[in-house]
Design a protein around this nucleic acid. Structure first.
Lengths: 250, 250
DNA sequence: AAAATAGTGTCTGTGAGACACTATGAC
DNA sequence: GTCATAGTGTCTCACAGACACTATTTT
């Protein structure tokens, strides 16, 4: 029934209230070893004073482009260049229950963005109202954004297991320890350093050696680590399974 | 920028052409050992005479409900009762590129539906134009529905690995062989009967025994198989990995 | 009787995780 | 020197997949 005739035949304005389409972005990065999400402070009703995910109305553009544009606007960066060049963007889910926005029917396409350490949005710019905050402190968000964030985090944690997503959180060249810190931050669990090391190097295409060595050892001592780049794998096989939690199963 | 003030301040009709929101459903079932998808024949332009996924405009209802309603309308069944009672519905992805529908901006929320053997839509009813067709014969669909179907199939094949989704394709009570037939049909690969049997029974919560035995043996002979119900697991652990295909990794 | 299937036993290779250990470098 | 870290070695257990085999049922 996507055809025009049946659309017109069955059209009833009460059935089809004006619908707005927006994108909302769950942008994640790691700062000081903590997984952080980008939020904005709402100035207007409803939910004035509450925090919310960055987002906005879709223009005459693809949905992915709208998400990247919103992320750029809120961070004060330019899409596709500089720090935003390496951002990984993927669609999360679409939220469209009537009543999720008290003003009108809003269908929101949620996106998940992963970025290596973006700069703090600068005061004075358009992006002044945006800020990074540890995900465990991001509560009581506007609209249904608590739920969107929760589902985004679930997705991120899952994808670390079977995709090389973790490399999107580190610099182009990184050590195995830095990669492990990503897993630790996102999963919230310590991983055995030795086993993690062997595992990462054994998965084909996950990382490739640069031949270089880090300029210095760890902050609190230790030998200088070898540097790696992301490999060409799109799926990790065998996967890097997180410690099994019985409660995830049922 | 989901607030009303900034919406009005920045509003420009050229930026926000009328947007329609639809749902499209990739409904999968297994008929005669083949994975089949529900399609409709389009009568109107554009794509008149082409086949398309069932779908339609979203009314004043949650998105999930719209998907179930469309599925019910096209199959001539009643949502939530009878054969549609056990349908598994989940959101797939949202497609909204400008130009994907030549008439206007249409943002379509695609759903994936899994059902045990639904009846053929009856001729004479509203659903007469809908039909089941093996997925390998579903080509040249209208709009971007080829892509939506392809992504739906990918998702279905993935979810068989780590969720008990396969049980949504069989009757409430089933044999291990019937379950294996689902995997064979969806993955398009033969599985070793003995190993599959042991594996299924070893995954906690995947299936539970009814204590009963099938009324008769296989069509071409063999002992009568024990009957099982779906268990309470939502994730299979360890997962039932499909034979590794090197090309899936890169 | 013949053929197909249900279900089990067994062996092997791989990989995850626990633990131990060496070497290196920051402080 | 002290301590934390990088990276490797080794052992054990779980599991996937190959193969073999028995028992049971249909044609």
């Amino acid at each position: 029934m996507t055809d025009e005739a049946s659309f017109l035949a069955e059209y009833d304005p009460r059935d089809y209230p004006a619908v707005a389409v927006t994108v909302d972005v769950v942008a994640l990065t790691i700062r000081d070893g903590k997984l952080c999400v980008l939020l904005v402070e709402r100035g207007e009703q409803p939910f004035a004073g509450h925090r919310a995910l960055p987002g906005g109305f879709v223009r005459d553009e693809p949905l992915d482009e709208a998400a990247l544009r919103e992320l750029a606007e809120e961070t004060g960066l330019h899409p596709g260049e500089g720090p935003l060049e390496r951002v990984h963007l993927e669609q999360l889910r679409t939220y469209g229950d009537p009543g999720r926005d008290p003003r009108m029917r809003v269908v929101s396409v949620a996106y998940l963005a992963f970025a290596p350490h973006l700069p703090e949005p600068t005061a004075g710019s358009d992006a002044a109202r945006a800020f990074w905050i540890p995900v465990e402190d991001a509560k009581d968000l506007a609209f249904d954004h608590d739920q969107i964030l929760a589902e985004g985090l679930d997705r991120a944690r899952d994808k670390l297991e079977y995709t090389p997503l973790a490399t999107a959180f580190v610099d182009r060249e990184f050590t195995v320890s830095e990669l492990r810190a990503v897993y630790t931050a996102v999963w919230g669990e310590e991983l055995h350093a030795g086993n993690f090391h062997r595992k990462v190097l054994s998965v084909p295409g996950f990382v490739e050696s640069t031949g270089e060595t880090a300029a210095r050892g760890g902050e609190r001592g230790g030998p200088r680590a070898k540097l790696y780049r992301a490999g060409d794998a799109t799926l990790l096989h065998p996967a890097l399974l997180r410690p099994t939690r019985e409660d995830r199963i049922r």
